[in-house]
């Protein structure tokens, strides 16, 4: 067990409950796909797991230790976070951006050293984006920025990587390439937690799926069993069918 969430609850301003009594666990190499409608609170849940928001009640255990008792930089050595695409104010080069993943290992009065740049370079190489290395982050495409952000998480050398809608703003091809990449990283032993609006991603990733419904309940299970026509239709208020496709060798979703 690497990450365990126990009875998490969260509400904004004590008025609207975002989620209630949420529990799940994830092991090394596992994938958790969080589905939910717009405004259901997927990002809020992810931000709680990422140690950015404090849940109202419940606790998160990292390798058996309570996250709330841990130092913020120790959490950052275990959990990497890939936010939704944004545009930073300054045009750091891709290398400078990726090396920032080394921050939890760099003292407050220090700057990244040769070893940190070495690790950053290896992460860039692993994502196969060496050609972008010296370009300003602000001047590359959205898909490339997504890759750079994941490279930064790799440089952070965490056990868990959280991704907030990594496929948003990406074209059809890049969406599936990112999903493929997430699956490969899980094979290497990273625990991946991502939010998405596309239930099909859960089928491709074949891991656990968590559905956050409007009442703030999270139901967790394996993608194959949990995502049936009834559940999906109810979640998205649409008539959705799922069926096995022999060519894709997985279930696919059809809106009818």
């Amino acid at each position: 067990m690497i990450l365990e969430a126990k009875n998490l609850s969260f509400s904004y301003q004590k008025s609207r409950t975002i989620f209630n009594n949420v529990s799940f666990r994830i092991d090394a190499g596992e994938i958790l796909t969080i589905l939910g409608t717009n405004g259901a609170g997927k990002s809020t849940l992810l931000n709680c797991i990422a140690n950015m928001y404090k849940p109202d009640s419940g606790e998160i255990l990292l390798n058996g230790k309570r996250m709330s008792d841990m130092d913020i930089s120790d959490v950052a050595k275990l959990i990497g976070y890939v936010p939704q695409l944004n545009s930073p104010a300054y045009g750091y080069s891709v290398l400078e951006y990726v090396v920032m993943g080394r921050t939890p290992y760099i003292g407050a009065f220090s700057t990244p050293g040769a070893e940190d740049y070495q690790i950053a370079n290896e992460s860039i190489e692993k994502m196969d984006i060496m050609h972008l290395r010296d370009k300003p982050y602000t001047q590359i495409s959205g898909g490339e920025q997504q890759q750079v952000q994941i490279a930064r998480s790799l440089a952070q050398q965490t056990k868990i990587i959280l991704l907030d809608e990594p496929t948003a703003h990406l074209d059809y091809g890049n969406q599936f390439r990112v999903v493929e990449m997430i699956r490969n990283l899980a094979k290497e032993g990273y625990s991946m937690i991502m939010t998405t609006h596309n239930p099909e991603h859960a089928f491709i990733l074949t891991g656990k799926v968590a559905i956050l419904n409007r009442d703030g309940m999270l139901c967790v299970g394996c993608a194959e069993d949990t995502l049936d026509a009834g559940t999906l239709s109810e979640l998205y208020a649409l008539s959705i069918k799922t069926k096995y496709d022999a060519d894709a060798k997985r279930k696919i979703c059809i809106v009818c």
Binding site: N51, V75, Y81, N86, T103, P104
Partner: peptide, 13 residues
């Protein structure tokens, strides 16, 4: 300079 959330996720108090 990356923003509050990203700084936190990189272990900055």
């Amino acid at each position: 300079s990356l923003g509050d959330m990203e700084a936190k996720s990189l272990g900055i108090n």
